[in-house]
């Protein structure tokens, strides 16, 4: 039973992490709250749906392989959308974080309604690839392959993101801008460019998250709003600007909420987890881990 709960917690945490990691980049780097993040997820989910439909109609013999193509394509499409969003809208609002929150919320409404007009309001089901059916039986508990797959996917993404941010030139530029924007600009980093592509990466990761969510259940135009608030809580709890903080935050919230849910009920669990977050912020107002800067206002 304990193992079951533990695994559930990790699974929920991995989903939260997958969603929050894109947020951590956009939020951490630019201080922009992207309320359309959930809808970028939805874009990824619908991309997966379309690709699965194409495979089912044109190449039924290799239908199970659609997922291999779906992951990169949902990344690309969401990233492209995010890039366009940054270029056209968000870059005008860097100095007004509260306004950027409202504007991106407007974008999220538009995207939701567009999805509703194209795909219809009811949820659509994506048939998961057959090679992810079933699970491993271990210690008297069942570990479904789908959830294991998501867990692995998240770990792989975190690993690559970490390598990207610390070992490549482009990644280190992102870090430099995160730490001290004016100084980075003085040293010759084209901060607008960095903003644009890191926003694209963050959005692309949202797309991958959406793609992974199709494994867990049917998807609809409002799928993003289910998760987005929790994902923001993860970022706040974890602290801005550090991947490790986001990881601890996501798995922490995942584990705590499944255990509380198990001993009480889903509704009470939401209340308790929120109160715990507020209580935690009394102790560490800026989250678990955060980049140390000396800037004040």
């Amino acid at each position: 039973m304990l193992i079951d709960q533990l695994f559930n917690g990790l699974s929920v945490g991995s989903i939260l992490l997958l969603i929050a990691i894109g947020l951590a980049i956009t939020f951490g780097l630019m201080g922009v709250i992207n309320m359309a993040h959930g809808e970028l997820m939805m874009v990824g989910a619908y991309t997966t749906y379309v690709i699965q439909q194409i495979f089912a109609h044109h190449a039924p013999q290799s239908a199970g392989m659609y997922f291999v193509i779906a992951i990169p394509s949902s990344f690309l499409i969401a990233a492209l959308l995010g890039w366009g969003l940054e270029k056209s809208l968000i870059r005008h609002l860097y100095h007004r974080p509260l306004d950027s929150l409202l504007a991106t919320w407007g974008i999220s409404l538009i995207l939701q309604q567009t999805a509703r007009l194209i795909f219809g309001a009811p949820n659509v089901a994506v048939v998961p690839p057959s090679w992810l059916d079933g699970g491993i039986h271990l210690f008297g508990a069942v570990f479904p392959y789908k959830r294991l797959f998501i867990l692995c996917l998240v770990l792989v993404i975190v690993f690559f993101l970490y390598m990207y941010l610390t070992k490549t030139r482009a990644g280190r530029r992102i870090q430099a801008v995160t730490m001290n924007r004016p100084m980075a600009a003085c040293l010759g980093i084209a901060t607008p460019k960095v903003d644009a592509y890191s926003f694209a990466i963050g959005s692309g990761l949202a797309g991958v998250a959406g793609c992974a969510l199709t494994l867990l259940g049917p998807i609809g135009p409002t799928i993003g709003t289910y998760y987005i608030v929790d994902a923001f809580m993860v970022v706040i709890l974890g602290g801005v600007g550090k991947l490790a903080g986001t990881m601890v935050g996501a798995f922490g919230i995942g584990l705590i909420s499944t255990f509380v849910e198990y001993s009480t009920s889903a509704t009470i669990a939401k209340v308790i987890v929120f109160v715990l977050i507020i209580a935690f912020l009394q102790w560490k107002p800026s989250g678990l881990l955060r980049l140390r800067t000396r800037s004040l206002d």
């Binding site: 919320w105 999220s108 538009i110």
Partner: peptide, 20 residues
């Protein structure tokens, strides 16, 4: 009803960008 949500979303963007 379909148009309303699109309009609401666009209104957010327009107000924030052009008529704060």
């Amino acid at each position: 009803p379909d148009l309303w949500l699109l309009l609401l979303g666009a209104l957010f963007v327009v107000v924030v960008l052009f008529v704060p």
